[in-house]
Nucleic acid binder design. Structure first.
Lengths: 111, 111
DNA sequence: ACAACATACAACCATTTGGTTGTATGTTGT
DNA sequence: ACAACATACAACCAAATGGTTGTATGTTGT
């Protein structure tokens, strides 16, 4: 092994969640303020269920959280998760700069 | 429309390229220094063709470039592309801060 | 109580993805 | 010249993705 396994799982989930433009758009909305799933769904030309699944993907990745308010689920974006993605990119930039002490710790050593 | 269409295509490609751990690992290697496709392939427990496809995905996303050297293709990571992803995340953080002037310009106005 | 609303989730489908093997093409060193 | 090497790419396959419709469950206001 090398690169902490669960952290790679997190990275997979985060980048995958961000790889869809509808999900990025939803994320922008919920970072700007709370929105119910229904309110979000109203913004897109697709079924409620499709939007709800996108919200679920973002939630599983930790990019948004939901809280119940009566019969609504209010979703808010988690800026800390966004920052954690940014720091993964910073790490990549550090690799480029040659600034990583133990670069082999970041690279998969198959053998 | 809203959010520049081609820039969304770029974002799709970049985040998708980053959403696979093998590709992130390849990107780390080529950010640290040039590597031939064969050298990269030697590091993973999968076929040469599989690794070559991962390299192609990274290349299409603009995260790496190749230059020919004799019979080898040497791949190097493009740190500017990594930074462009970082700035997309910064923009998300700006949305969260409420710092975006015309927030509606960033959000899809379907109607 | 109950109709309308908000959400969740299952089942299904077409397309994409990540892998495979096989084949073709270009480059090099002897 | 030619064998070995480096790469590219097509064809194929199973699994995952992004969408659909339909159904079930909880919540609210009258």
């Amino acid at each position: 092994m090398s690169v902490n396994e669960t952290s790679e799982d997190r990275a997979d989930a985060l980048f995958h969640a961000l790889s869809d433009r509808t999900r990025r758009d939803i994320l922008r909305r919920v970072l700007a303020g709370e929105h119910s799933v229904t309110a979000l769904a109203a913004s897109y030309d697709m079924s409620f269920a499709a939007v709800q699944k996108h919200v679920a993907v973002l939630e599983r990745a930790g990019l948004l959280t939901k809280r119940r308010n009566g019969r609504e689920q209010l979703a808010s974006g988690d800026v800390a998760a966004v920052r954690s993605v940014a720091s993964m990119l910073d790490e990549l930039e550090d690799v480029w700069r040659g600034r990583i002490d133990r670069i082999d710790a970041l690279l998969t050593e198959e053998t």
